[in-house]
Write a protein that binds this DNA or RNA. Structure first.
Lengths: 338, 338
DNA sequence: GAAATTTATGATAGCGGTGTCATATCTAAT
DNA sequence: ATTAGATATGACACCGCTATCATAAATTTC
């Protein structure tokens, strides 16, 4: 099975290389009959254009990079799923770059990676979405970028976000609606954009309901299972413990569930625990967690769609797209005891 | 910042393009002084070779594909981690292909993907590692392949495996050693290679210990949380229920834990439950699971190392490499009640 | 119906490297 | 000293495609 090149097709269809190229790239100014003839030749010969050659001639690579934190989790796999779906549909390939976001040399290392791959565009996930140095680098290189889950909205850089503050607000409204007013909140890392937003929804909901915010009910975690355990120990040993604990991610919530059970506290009978993210573990623990499902895959699809439009130099409808979260009520929440 | 090409470097160093190319590719027959001079020019000019051009001229792409099942989990992210580590170190890029393994058109779809990307090589993960049609396709195309976690050992196709049967054996030995002899086993999907191996370890250990194998103690699951629940319900309603249940993955084990707790059965006091895989969820549930840690990342590193050797046409030390699993004892197992 | 556009097509020169082969220089062997 | 072989380097074609520009044919305009 020898390779079929554009010359073979040209000969077969009785036209010039350039016309083949025009059909390939959907350029205008090809008559309908010619186009048809060429497309038939494609099929008949089983022709596949060589991406290397196209890339060289057009200075494109048909490669899109995905930058994400290396201690990856279900968030990442959903992002990948969405990004790939679009890439595939549009004839691009996805190259993944898990990077340690605390790495001092990130920028320079990533820069050398950029060089060696000629990416057509890059998708940034948190916390990279908010790293200004990185954004500057990409701007300088004129590499198209789309940011996912970014905190700040930067001029001219397109982004896709979810409404975390609102979802957090909604979760608290739900808790209040089933009778809770002693609601604790566990924050995540402060350097993660979502932390602030999720907390703001909590604040808003409580204020609105006229519930005073008790300082001891606000605990600082770091998104890890262990930090959830620590916070739970502190919260559950208060003289007046909360009747509901809202952790800003599911892993911390799982830690709370564990500590509560160890203390013989029944969930949700004695204590309601809720999380955020709808991580796989939220289904696997018992009781399963009431949580917020982020439309991660959908966000990635949208981000990739936007990126490819930019690469193709087509206009974007909007510079920032928001995709809505969804409250999922499972077994870990119940009305407050009266 | 304009692009520096090989011609610029050639002029700067006062040698021909070809000599630059030689230095770039570490070819022999370049004098030490020349090499030094050229390397200095690289740095001074900030030269980066264009991968597209290299690819076109040498019919390489510096791209490695990773094929894995699309309902991805922690297994996949560990595989990615390992594969990437090696790719990066060797100047390759990783392109990911999550595919539905039950898709009828997998082969033809994947084939068209192959065409459009010119991969230098491919890493196959289960259950793709054992799909003969796929292997045939890749063989026909003469694309280097390494299989991870393959069941059958095929001639000439290199593979990296873990000793699942042994690990399963070891787990059972551990259970027996702490006094269990009513040990149930939950199988996974039959089409997944590991299923059989994990079961064989169970068989061997019990036989060796002179424990009769009770048919009802062998349950058929499908690696899902829900199937674990189902199997648990059946097992725990037997007249003489098992004192230990060994599920062949952690998700099923989590399902068992849930059902047991719902029935008021205390783990590990009344029932020991163990899993396989060391999935993240195995740490997040309570009690945390005794399980088998697979050296997944290490397997991927080794697989990628082998693949790159093949691509570079360097000889392989061994055609099949085995990396050992490890038993991790956590909270879900305890001595049998006497 | 002539001039001005628009549309369709091809010839040719790269894109930035590598492969092949020729040539020049150096070392080892006779 | 002479020759054979190894080592170092360069000239140039070529990888498979796209960009530019020229040209021919079809259409519109006045």
């Amino acid at each position: 099975m020898k390779k079929i090149t554009i010359n073979d097709v040209a000969r077969h269809a009785g036209v010039s290389k350039k016309t083949i190229s025009r059909v390939l790239n959907e350029e205008p100014n090809v008559s309908i009959e010619t186009r048809k003839k060429v497309e038939e030749s494609f099929i008949e010969l089983g022709y596949r254009p060589n991406p290397q050659a196209r890339g060289l001639a057009s200075s494109q690579s048909y490669l899109i990079g995905l930058l994400y934190p290396s201690q990856s989790n279900s968030y990442v796999s959903n992002i990948q799923k969405g990004a790939l779906e679009r890439c595939r549909a549009e004839g691009f390939h996805l190259v993944i770059y898990p990077e340690d976001h605390e790495n001092e040399n990130l920028i320079s290392q990533f820069e050398s990676n950029l060089y060696s791959s000629n990416l057509d565009g890059i998708i940034l996930t948190p916390p990279f979405s908010d790293m200004t140095k990185l954004l500057d680098l990409l701007k300088e290189r004129e590499i198209p970028v789309v940011r996912v889950g970014a905190l700040s909205s930067l001029d001219k850089i397109p982004s896709v976000i979810s409404n975390d503050a609102e979802a957090s607000y909604e979760m608290c409204r739900y808790l209040i609606s089933i009778g809770h007013h002693k609601i604790a909140f566990i924050k995540g890392n402060l350097d993660h954009g979502a932390t602030e937003q999720r907390f703001s929804g909590y604040n808003k909901a409580l204020k609105e309901a006229g519930i005073p915010i008790i300082e001891q009910f606000i605990q600082q975690g770091n998104f890890s299972f262990e930090s959830g355990e620590d916070c739970a120990r502190r919260l559950l040993s208060l003289k007046t413990p909360p009747s509901a604990i809202f952790a800003s991610n599911d892993y911390m919530a799982a830690g709370i569930v564990k500590v509560a059970k160890q203390k013989g506290i029944s969930i949700p009978h004695d204590l309601t625990v809720t999380g955020f993210d709808n991580a796989p573990a939220s289904r696997y623990i018992w009781p399963s967690l009431t949580t917020i499902k982020q439309p991660i895959t959908e966000m990635a699809i949208e981000a990739t769609r936007m990126l490819i439009r930019i690469i193709r130099k087509k206009p974007l409808d909007r510079l920032s797209v928001t995709i809505r979260n969804e409250l999922i009520v499972r077994e870990s929440s119940a009305p407050a005891k009266t």
